[in-house]
């Protein structure tokens, strides 16, 4: 199994990568961990003319605290996040989700930035980032900008990334005290992507839910924030009955995907089950 021919350039820095993207245009693709791109290229489902390798750009690989934010460089691998004490302290769902991606070999190579930019609707990070209220940092020839994760995923493999822009980092505001989180995933048994994944971050104060954020991936063509759940739970006690009632409308407006592992009806049902499991795990 071999790919089409292509040229390969290793970018030395973020700016170098951007310059290379500008230079090579649509024919180029960024290569980070390569775990979505290379299999597709081997099957010849994709044949870029040039790969710009950003995996070894050291300035992209970090996990650090910056003021009241946790910042994860786009080049951090899933394994880096899975084993990061900082990430764990911020939201336990971060290492939890990282650990459920692919397998160890994939986690050793695959990067968080690559996964987010790829925007596979069944990938795990998008839901988690939405629940964490994260922002995605982008850099292009015209400078830097950041986009809330909630707005970043626009469709099937589609994001707000513009031509020649590079995803550089993800920043996550440190959660208020009393916040707990969980990511729960129902796996497609063959690929281990999510059939449905639900991430929940819940802040409980004085026995009441003060703040709650739920991100759902796998259900629709892009990960989304389950606003209805948030609305239904804020101000309520984190009881199973309240959670049951809140998840009932999960995915009501979503264009639900279907495949031979899960029909629309079943997927929708799973979204409720997993939203509940994530909320329960984050509150009970």
């Amino acid at each position: 199994m071999v790919t089409n021919k292509f040229d390969y350039i290793r970018a030395e820095s973020v700016d170098d990568a951007i310059t290379l993207m500008v230079k090579h245009g649509m024919d180029a693709k960024l290569l980070a961990g390569g775990h979505s791109l290379i299999p597709a290229m081997k099957l010849r489902l994709n044949a870029p003319g040039i790969l710009i390798d950003i995996r070894k750009i050291q300035e992209l690989r970090y996990i650090k605290k910056d003021g009241n934010k946790l910042v994860i460089g786009a080049g951090a691998t899933h394994h880096d996040v899975a084993t990061s004490e900082l990430a764990h302290q911020t939201y336990s769902m971060l290492p939890e989700a990282a650990d459920l991606i692919g397998d160890q070999q994939v986690r050793n190579m695959g990067t968080i930035g690559g996964s987010l930019a790829h925007a596979d609707p069944a990938a795990d990070w998008p839901g988690v980032m939405i629940a964490a209220g994260a922002s995605v940092h982008l850099k292009g020839p015209d400078g830097e900008r950041s986009v809330p994760a909630e707005d970043f995923f626009t469709g099937f493999y589609m994001t707000d990334l513009q031509e020649n822009e590079l995803l550089t980092a993800i920043s996550i505001p440190l959660p208020p005290e009393g916040t707990r989180s969980s990511y729960q995933k129902f796996m497609q048994p063959a690929s281990r992507f999510a059939i449905v994944g639900a991430a929940a971050a819940v802040t409980v104060k004085g026995g009441k839910i003060e703040r709650v954020k739920v991100g759902i991936n796998g259900l629709a063509d892009a990960a989304f924030a389950a606003g209805n759940i948030e609305k239904a739970l804020v101000g309520k006690e984190p009881t199973e009955a309240n959670i049951d009632a809140a998840v009932e409308s999960t995915g009501a407006d979503a264009m639900v995907m279907a495949d031979h592992f899960a029909s629309e009806e079943y997927r929708l049902h799973l979204a409720k089950v997993y939203a509940k499991r994530a909320l329960m795990a984050a509150t009970q």
Binding site: M1, H35, M109
Partner: peptide, 8 residues
């Protein structure tokens, strides 16, 4: 550990 079929 990496999968050498998915690495150039």
């Amino acid at each position: 550990a990496v999968k050498s079929c998915t690495m150039l």
